Simulated assay, not measured.
Amino acid sequence: MPYAEADGARLWYEEAGSGLPILFIHEFGADHREWEEQMRFFSREYRCIAYSARGYPPSDVPEDPKLYGQDHAVADAVAVLRHLGIGKAHIVGLSMGGFATLLFGIRHPEMALSLVPAGAGSGSPRAEQAEFRAQCAARGDRLIAQGWRGGMAEETGHAPTRIQLKKKDPRGWAAYMARLAEHSGRGTGLTMKHYQGERDSIFDWEAELRRMEVPTLLVVGDEDWPCIETNIFLKQVLPNAGLWMCPRTGHAINLEEPAAFNAALASFFSTVERGRWQLG
């Protein structure tokens, strides 16, 4: 198996295709496999890389809670690119991965051809942050104690921002649920507690975001309520960003609407590569 060495963990990755590179960073309730539709589509013209975050086998599951968090998430993305000898890539992330994508753009703009943070921002509005953090701590403890087969998978799959996938694509939802149940309870529990539950509010990054000029496509479903306010804020403060909102769509936008998602990204990448995504 191919692994990239990061601080305190080996990261399993896969790649397909050749050309300009795209790095895909998955969400909390997923792993590298949730990018399969994008890997197959974009590898026709791009070099596509997807990896499993620390805590998600076949990547390592560190025992030390200090080896989880937003700083490690960004450093891991950099580690994968450097391991592959890639100096610059399109960075695409969903939810937890979208958060890492934004922070990657702030900390490593020289390594980003563009950014696509999709479904990013849950827990960021200040009025919601305390409750969000408390929920993350409780969910993390439950995952560590019970794993995904203790009811967490069913709760996640039927959540108000995820039930859309089941309604649109029952077969795809069933496959997603089977993969979800395979995740490490300890790895995802520590991720929930120390990454999800302790990460910054995106609103706290306003000064840095206003200076970040990397071409950015914000992506959110119009039924992904916890993320809409944050994405409107991001559109207001990012100087080189566009906002694409997909109708009648929840959180797992790349699974719910893969054709529309892929088309939006392909158009965005092409515009950036032709030098036409310019500061307004």
Rank of each mutant, 00 (worst) to 15 (best):
Q164T: 12
H26L: 04
E154V: 06
R274Y: 06
G197K: 04
C227M: 10
T156C: 12
L84I: 10
W277A: 08
E208D: 13
G185I: 02
A16Q: 14
R274C: 11
D224L: 04
Q38T: 02
R210V: 03
D224H: 07
L190P: 04
G87T: 08
H83Q: 11
G17F: 04
I25L: 11
A266G: 11
K168I: 11
E229W: 06
H72Q: 14
F261E: 01
F24M: 01
G221I: 04
Q129G: 12
G87N: 10
L20H: 10
V220T: 10
K66N: 15
C227S: 12
W205E: 13
L84Y: 04
P226W: 08
P215Y: 00
A50D: 04
E154H: 02
I163Q: 09
P247D: 05
D60W: 01
G250S: 05
W205D: 13
R274A: 13
A181K: 15
C136K: 10
M177A: 08
G17Q: 02
A73G: 11
S184G: 01
V61R: 04
P21Q: 05
A130P: 06
E256H: 03
T216N: 00
G147Y: 00
I144V: 11
G87H: 07
E14D: 09
A263I: 09
F28T: 12
A73P: 07
W205N: 13
G8F: 10
T156R: 13
A30C: 11
L11P: 00
A207W: 09
R149Y: 06
V116L: 05
W244M: 12
F28L: 15
R33Y: 11
A207E: 15
A6Q: 05
F233L: 07
G242A: 12
W35P: 00
W148T: 02
V219Y: 09
A112Q: 06
A252L: 15
E34H: 13
P239H: 03
W12Q: 11
R276I: 09
R199Y: 05
G140A: 02
I86D: 05
D76I: 01
W244K: 13
G221V: 06
G187H: 03
E223Q: 15
E131G: 13
L23Y: 01
F269R: 05
S201Q: 04
P239F: 06
A175I: 13
P170F: 01
G280L: 14
W225V: 13
R47D: 07
R126K: 14
A127R: 14
D200K: 13
D200G: 09
G157T: 03
T188K: 12
P170M: 01
A73C: 14
E155Q: 15
G172Y: 05
S122Q: 15
Q146N: 14
E34G: 14
Y13Q: 04
I22P: 03
M96N: 12
S184M: 02
V214F: 02
W205V: 09
Y46L: 07
I253Y: 08
K167M: 14
P62E: 07
A79D: 04
S95F: 08
I228H: 05
W35I: 00
L81G: 02
V61K: 07
W277D: 04
G185W: 00
A145F: 00
G275W: 03
